[in-house]
Write a protein that binds this DNA or RNA. Structure first.
Lengths: 203, 203
DNA sequence: AAACAATATGACCGACCGGTCGCTAATATT
DNA sequence: AATATTAGCGACCGGTCGGTCATATTGTTT
């Protein structure tokens, strides 16, 4: 179908725009204009704005999996995979794929106090990411690369915090060194927990 | 003047609302309605929305200084003061003073790609906070409480990241453990850098 | 080629946006 | 007590918001 092509084009553009304007601040007229289509044309594919927003969140989640999670899975299970998840995230941000840096970094603070289906979708995606970090960290313990007794929940929180902070730090404060800070902080933390730090890159 | 009283009331309410809705999403009609005043009454104090937004940012900055920075200054210069800054921040968030948790956590991601006077004001406030963290960290080195050679810029970034992440984590994902995670992460980090960890609280 | 659905358009709607204006009510000064 | 000034209100403006609808233009199927 040709409709599917435009559907993807709309979602691609919407994720980009939402990374800058937010998912609620993004107006349908503006989205349509950027795409060069008519505003009412959007309603041919989604019944209302909320359904479109849900599709946008899902699209952003797919992009996240495709560009960050999947490539990181090439690294061997354990500490190196955990590090790869963070490194791929940094690379994704640095590449400037999204003008706002990160869809979820822009949308999560916007929706964190506005209950509803869209918030649920974003929370679910965010939760899945946290779970992934925890699972990979737990694997690192299982394969003997990370010290037993490590609080994987807390470690996941730290990696997430150091990863997300880069977006605001580099865009608002225009400090390019935040990428290096974030990488060094996560790497040092992982090396400190490693049974054999030499499997991780140098600081 | 009586006008000054309402001015403060408006700004108080505006900071609260903006911590939820954002500073651009906050509409004048909604702000006026929440306060029980007429929308046009707001224009008696500020010429337009942007000027009001600038006043809101300044008010939030004052609140931050009053409730976090100033109390932390009671702690002795050095590591304990650095820890107090983070602890006061956690306490401020946990107290629920602002319904959205934090004004700057809500506003920074919203404005980080929208240049203009309001962005500049937020960036300036954020920068001042980062500078404060760095200065206090540098003091910790000077007084011999922290290992020389510590990258204070990076340490400030880490503390800021671990502090800000709590807001989204606790509100969007409704995970209460994020406060404990954040405290433990910062405390462990500081103890690792301390020449005498015993001056800091137990983990 | 005809028929039919999927895809897109432009005109239009009520609601709300930021902002203006003329006016009234409260306050401060004399 | 009279006056000058500030504080605040209600009505209204052009513009944009999300959303509807009748209609035209595709693309596919027979």
């Amino acid at each position: 179908m040709r409709g599917e092509r435009t559907r993807q084009a709309v979602l691609d553009c919407a994720v980009s725009l939402a990374s800058v304007e937010g998912i609620d601040g993004l107006s349908l007229a503006r989205l349509a204009q950027t795409l060069g289509v008519s505003k009412s044309g959007l309603f041919a594919h989604w019944p209302d704005k909320q359904r479109l927003q849900l599709a946008i969140v899902e699209h952003a989640r797919q992009q996240w999996i495709e560009e960050i999670v999947r490539p990181a899975m090439d690294s061997p299970a354990g500490l190196r995979r955990l590090w790869a998840l963070h490194e791929r995230r940094m690379a994704f941000y640095e590449a400037g794929t999204l003008p706002g840096g990160c869809f979820f970094a822009a949308v999560a603070p916007e929706l964190d106090d506005r209950p509803g289906p869209v918030q649920d979708a974003v929370a679910l995606a965010n939760d899945a990411w946290m779970d992934l970090l925890e699972r990979v960290a737990a694997q690192a313990i299982e394969v003997g690369e990370m010290r037993p007794g490590t609080d994987v929940g807390r470690l996941a929180f730290e990696i997430q915090a150091l990863g997300e902070a880069v977006v605001v730090h580099s865009h608002l404060l225009r400090r390019g060194d935040s990428y290096a800070y974030s990488r060094a902080a996560v790497l040092d933390r992982l090396r400190g927990l490693a049974t054999d730090p030499s499997i991780l890159p140098e600081a």
